[in-house]
Simulated assay, not measured.
Amino acid sequence: MRIVILTVIRFAPVGALLLIGLVAAGCGKKPAAAGPSEMQTVCEGQPLRTVERREQAQQDGYDIDRRFDCITKESWAANQQYRDRAASTRNMESVQPVDIVLVDVNTATQEEIAVVITVSRETAAQIIVERGIRRFKDWPDLTSRIKAFRDPQAAVAASTCGLTVDGKSLEGVPPNGLMAARLRETYRDYNRR
């Protein structure tokens, strides 16, 4: 028994060194190099290359892909959407309310109806034609007979901007000068396309 213990003690350092060598060899392996096409799939822009650029990118809210040392496409897109929304909000904060003039579909002229911010000339003409057949009795009648107002958002926008039926706004949607100003900006941008 004494010989076995001495043999184990004598060879233990060799075994430990062998085990450490095997672990170190496995840990030192580098992952397979990724090709340029994979980098283009993952990265937005060029590698960051410096600690300062990496830290700045992280402070700006970007995720860094460690394999390529670059900003990920996903975080770039998310940041861009956030910046666009923030810019839009800033633009909307500077909008001044408009004075709302109530325009009744049963009594106004085609030109007066077309002045309502979200109502097109074609819709105003259709209102005049339909009104000639019979008066609009309420908002459901207007939305069922005028194609543009079948979209609930269009009816809400028109009521917000001052369109009425027999002097009444769409239920729950009173005229609102600030919202009308924002809609004017939205429709102006839409019509420029």
Results as ranks from 00 to 15, higher is better:
Leu178Glu: 06
Ala154Arg: 10
Ala86Tyr: 14
Leu102Phe: 02
Pro47Tyr: 13
Met1Cys: 09
Gly26His: 15
Phe149Lys: 00
Ala125Lys: 04
Ala148Trp: 00
Pro140Cys: 11
Asp189Trp: 14
Thr143Arg: 11
Ala114Glu: 02
Ala87Phe: 07
Gln59Gly: 09
Arg67Lys: 12
Thr50Asn: 06
Leu102Ala: 04
Val156Glu: 09
Leu6Tyr: 00
Phe136Val: 00
Ala114Thr: 03
Gln58Asp: 09
Val119Asn: 04
Ile9Ser: 10
Ile127Leu: 15
Ala158Gln: 01
Ala158Cys: 05
Arg49Gln: 13
Arg90Leu: 15
Leu178Gly: 14
Pro174Thr: 00
Thr7Trp: 00
Arg145Pro: 00
Gln59Asn: 10
Arg188Ile: 05
Glu112Cys: 10
Met39Lys: 03
Glu93Pro: 06
Gly132Leu: 04
Lys30Tyr: 11
Thr50Met: 02
Ala158Gly: 09
Ser120Leu: 03
Val115Gln: 07
Arg121Trp: 04
Arg66Phe: 12
Ile3Pro: 04
Gln56Met: 12
Arg145Lys: 11
Thr164Glu: 09
Leu22Arg: 12
Met1Gln: 09
Thr164Lys: 01
Ala12Leu: 13
Glu38Cys: 04
Arg90Ile: 13
Glu111Asp: 13
Gln40Phe: 12
Ile113Phe: 13
Asn191Phe: 11
Gly167Arg: 03
Cys43Val: 08
Lys147Val: 05
Ser159His: 00
Ser94Met: 06
Lys147Gly: 03
Arg145Asn: 11
Asp63Phe: 03
Asp166Cys: 01
Arg85Leu: 05
Gln40Met: 10
Val23Tyr: 11
Ala16Met: 07
Gly132Glu: 10
Val95Ala: 14
Arg131His: 11
Val4Leu: 15
Asn79Gln: 13
Leu183Ser: 07
Val105Cys: 06
Gly45Met: 04
Val165Cys: 02
Ala25Arg: 13
Ser159Cys: 01
Val103Leu: 03
Ala125Gly: 05
Arg135Gly: 02
Arg182Asp: 08
Asn106Gln: 05
Arg85Gly: 01
Leu183Glu: 05
Ser75Cys: 14
Ile117Phe: 01
Ala86Ile: 11
Val173Leu: 00
Ala86Gln: 15
Cys161Asn: 13
Arg67Glu: 15
Asp166Val: 01
Val115His: 01
Asp99Met: 02
Arg54Thr: 12
Asn191Glu: 07
Thr118Gly: 01
Leu163Asn: 02
Val165Glu: 07
Tyr82Ile: 06
Lys73Asp: 15
Thr109Leu: 12
Tyr187Ser: 01
Arg2Gln: 06
Lys147His: 08
Arg145Thr: 07
Pro175Trp: 02
Lys73Arg: 15
Val105His: 10
Asp63Val: 10
Leu102Thr: 02
Ala34Asp: 14
Ser144Gly: 07
Glu122Asp: 15
